[in-house]
Amino acid sequence: MASTAPKKLVELFYDVVSPYSWFAFEVLCRYKNVWMIDLHLKPVFLGGIMKKSGNIPPVMGCANKAIYIPKDVYRMSNYMKVDFKFPTDTFGTMFDKGSLKAMRFVTAVDMIDSSFTENVSRILWSRIHRNDEDITEVASFQLVGKQVGIEPEMLNKAISTITDATIKKRLTDYTDEALEKGAFGAPTIVAHVNGKQEMIFGCDRFPILANILGEKWVGPVPDIPQTKL
């Protein structure tokens, strides 16, 4: 008999500019039906979190870390089984162009029909961190929307409202919510268990998250339970 216990809520605060957020996102998506969690995807603007928390990007704050991070990202992508590749112009793409427009697009889609949020986010990550493609132009958002099957009317609405106050406010609200819960970067994961909130930073704390949830971590690619008919 299937369990009737309520699912445990897990929130992921993420930005598609962040490779580590992508790794956390993919693992949580793989585990949501294994751990039976209610996964809430919450798009934020990483630049806002960094600024408001007083954090400094690792490649700017420490020379040795700037050397280490690229190696670590590739090792982590291999371990997490996520096909990753830095953009050719990494600094220009991630810092000069950034992800504000992309995260507003994700937010607009999420507010209209959240069933598309997961796939839209995944495609945006793939564009910037696998295919070295743009995530800032309207044409890019149109391609992403078509790729995930968003109807033209909804897609046009999402794109046309990117600069609306309601979209900006939602993105700001989620960013501020992450900060209130202790965020200083991305990914930030918040688990709600027994009336308490546990904040976890990064994509390499899944054994700790499993322990908090009372579940088992079996690596980045679990066996997905099959529904019996």
Rank of each mutant, 00 (worst) to 15 (best):
V59D: 00
F116I: 09
I123C: 06
L100M: 13
Y68T: 02
D72C: 07
K85Q: 13
T136Q: 02
E133R: 15
A139T: 15
M103S: 04
P70Q: 12
I123Y: 02
S121F: 09
Q142W: 12
F116E: 01
V59W: 03
M94S: 13
R122M: 01
M76S: 02
T88R: 15
K101W: 00
D83A: 05
I128Q: 10
M94C: 14
E118L: 13
I135P: 01
V73P: 02
D89Y: 12
P58A: 11
V120A: 11
M80N: 04
K71G: 11
T117I: 08
D113Q: 13
H129Y: 00
D134E: 08
A66K: 07
F86A: 12
V138I: 15
V138E: 11
V138N: 10
T117Q: 04
D89I: 01
K81N: 12
D96K: 15
N119K: 15
S126G: 08
K65M: 12
L100D: 07
P70I: 11
H129P: 04
R127Y: 14
M103L: 08
A139Q: 13
R122I: 02
V120R: 04
F86G: 07
I112H: 08
F105R: 11
K71P: 01
V138F: 10
D96T: 14
A63S: 05
F105T: 06
D83R: 09
R122T: 06
G61L: 01
D113Y: 05
V138T: 14
